[in-house]
C-alpha cells in the first residue's frame, strides 16, 4: 500500500487540521497488513470517520481502486476540503461529507470497512465541550475522560453500520483501556483483535479490528 503524497500541505494547513503522525502511519501499516483480507472481502463501501488530511482513506482508495466506493467523513469542514485535495492529487476517488460521526448516514448494515482514528488523548471533559462551541484543532485529538468520550459515542452505532462480514478498524492508546473496549464491543456482538501495535515517544498505540462473532 503506497503512502499518499501530502506535498500540497503546508504548516498553514496543519494549523487547522491534524498533521499525520505515528498513529496515522500505524493505521496505514495495519490496513496494509490486512490488505489480502480486504481484497478478498471485496468491500463495496469503505468509510473513514475523522479523515483529517485524508492520508489514510486515500491510501485505501488507491489500494482498492474501482472495486470500492470510499467515503471520508470529518466534522471539520477544513479537513474535508483537504481530504478531497489529497485524494485528487493522488489520482484517486474519495467522496467527502462533513458530519458529526455517522449522524447523517441512512444506510443500515451496508458498510464493509469502517475506519476511525479518533481523538484518543486523555483530557478534561470540558475540552470536548469547549470545542463544540469554538471548534478548533483541539477537536482532532482531545478525547476527554480516558480519551474515550468520542469513540464511546460511535460504539453503539457499529452494529447498525457494519455489513455482515464487515470490519471496523480503530486506533487507540493503552490509556483508552483496550480491555474495556473489548468488553463493550463483545456485548455489542463483536470479536476484537489487535492488528498492530507500536510504542513511540511514551505512547503505546494499537490498531484494533472488530468483526461480528
Amino acid at each position: 500500500m503506497d503512502t499518499p503524497s501530502l506535498s500540497h500541505l503546508s504548516v498553514k494547513d496543519y494549523a487547522q487540521i491534524y498533521e499525520p503522525a505515528e498513529d496515522s502511519f500505524l493505521l496505514i501499516d495495519a490496513l496494509e497488513q490486512d490488505l489480502i483480507f480486504l481484497q478478498k472481502m471485496k468491500p463495496s463501501v469503505c468509510v473513514e470517520i475523522g479523515s483529517g488530511s485524508g492520508v489514510v482513506i486515500t491510501a485505501v482508495a488507491k489500494a482498492l481502486g474501482t472495486n470500492s466506493h470510499c467515503i471520508a467523513i470529518d466534522i471539520n469542514p477544513v479537513a474535508c476540503g483537504v481530504t478531497q485535495r489529497t485524494a485528487q492529487l493522488n489520482h484517486t476517488e474519495v467522496e467527502v461529507v462533513t458530519m458529526d460521526l455517522m449522524s447523517g448516514f441512512h444506510w443500515d448494515n451496508r458498510i464493509d470497512v469502517l475506519i476511525f482514528n479518533p481523538p484518543y488523548v486523555v483530557t478534561p471533559s470540558e475540552e470536548i465541550l469547549e470545542n463544540k462551541v469554538y471548534g478548533d484543532i483541539t477537536r482532532a485529538w482531545a478525547g476527554g475522560e480516558r480519551g474515550r468520550e468520542v469513540m464511546d459515542r460511535l460504539f453503539p452505532m457499529v452494529p447498525n453500520l457494519l455489513s455482515l462480514y464487515g470490519a471496523f478498524y480503530l486506533v487507540v492508546i493503552s490509556e483508552n483501556c483496550p480491555d474495556d473496549i473489548k468488553r463493550v464491543m463483545d456485548e455489542l456482538g463483536f470479536d476484537m483483535n489487535i492488528v498492530k501495535e507500536r510504542k513511540v515517544r511514551g505512547e503505546h498505540l494499537l490498531v484494533l479490528k472488530f468483526v461480528r462473532k
Binding site: V45, E95, S103, G104, H106, W107
Partner: peptide, 22 residues
C-alpha cells in the same frame, strides 16, 4: 457529491425529524 453517496444520507439527526430520507 455523487448520487451513490446521496443514496446513503439522511437528515434524521434533526430534532423532530423521523426518517429524513430521501
Amino acid at each position: 457529491m455523487k448520487l451513490l453517496t446521496h443514496n446513503m444520507l439522511t437528515s434524521k439527526c434533526l430534532k423532530g425529524v423521523n426518517v429524513g430520507y430521501p
